Simulated assay, not measured.
Amino acid sequence: MLDRAPDLRGARLFRDDGARALVPGGARREAHLLRAVFRAALLHPGFAARGRHDAGREGVLAHLAKARGFVEKSPCGLHDGSRILEVRGESDRLRRGMTEGQPREIVAAVGLTKRFGDTVALDDVSFVVEGPGLCAVLGPNGAGKTTLLDLLEGLAEPTRGAYRLFGKEPRPYPRRRVGVVMQKEAQIERVTAREYAELFSAIYGVRGGPLRILARARLEHRAETAVTRLSGGEAARLFIATAVVHDPTLVFLDEPTAHLDPENKRIVGEMLRELAAERTLFMTTHDLREADALADRLLFLVGGRVRASGTKDELVQAVPAAERRGLGVEDAFFHFCAIEIREGQAIGRGEAT
């Protein structure tokens, strides 16, 4: 549990689109902030038992209530971490098998379709990803990447189709074995990096979690710095380290290096490659060169449809010699998708940006 509770004095409770979250008084009602805190509540391993979203939402409020003396009522019991060791042992066993040359199915989709009214966000998406390793989901803005993650994370239901995690239908959702990094994470004002690590370690029920998070994020020297004062690269490392503090087998990451400068992209990339050695990372990006440097497997998603999927080597080698420019993944993406990506936007080859 928390040795010293995060300073959330002045926090207030409010609603937006059905998501409840504790944020500092006076903070703007930004949808991404609400969604980030709400998703953290849904995805951490203790409170989302039986797949009930309300359990996750009320559970995180109850944890905060215990830490700060808030009087919010919670219909579910507080998570005591009693099953963490059991689940961690299972994760270790699975990873041992995979690192001994026995890849296994980690994520699979069969005909996944998602509609929002007349808009088709995903259309008959099918693929299989084995682990460990890093699978990069590549596509321009609006391709359906985040919608795909929402489905695979259990936060939305498909209009049609199904998916499997770890070779099984995800009912109940295996939240103890999954970590998530959002494209825009919650950055609570006045909370330091150490307090942020303490908060999420308590949510996940991991003893010694704060030190583990700060060490993995290389932020020991910045522990007393407010999260909102961290650089983009520092914040990205903190969010990634937080997402894996409970030692998940599978981690979903939504454009974790977006808007980072090249040096911070390199540092975060090294962190991701290290993590991918023992678990499966499923990462969305529109940076083709980043995917070339980091990914073992690729999934090309354009207009809500899968244009190609497979290992990086398979897709790159499938490009006819006449089309190759020595650009690896970039050549493969254009071959299968007939577009290029510049600053996140899809364009035809030779078009002006």
Rank of each mutant, 00 (worst) to 15 (best):
L298Q: 05
A291T: 06
T228D: 09
G310C: 10
E224H: 06
A293G: 02
E323T: 06
T285C: 10
A291E: 00
P262W: 10
E330N: 12
G328T: 09
T225W: 02
R229I: 08
G232R: 09
E314C: 07
L238E: 02
T225K: 12
L298V: 15
A295Y: 01
P256M: 08
F239H: 09
S309L: 01
D313W: 08
T257G: 08
H221Y: 01
D292N: 15
G328S: 13
R324V: 04
V245E: 13
R307N: 05
P256Y: 04
P248W: 01
I213T: 05
F252A: 11
T249R: 10
E255T: 15
A217N: 06
R307Q: 07
F282A: 09
G304I: 07
A226P: 00
F300C: 10
A293T: 08
E263C: 06
A258T: 08
T257A: 14
L275W: 02
A235V: 13
L214M: 12
T242Q: 04
F333R: 04
A332R: 00
A308W: 02
A308D: 09
G304W: 02
E270G: 15
A217H: 03
E263L: 14
Q317E: 12
D313I: 07
M283Q: 11
A322N: 11
R229L: 11
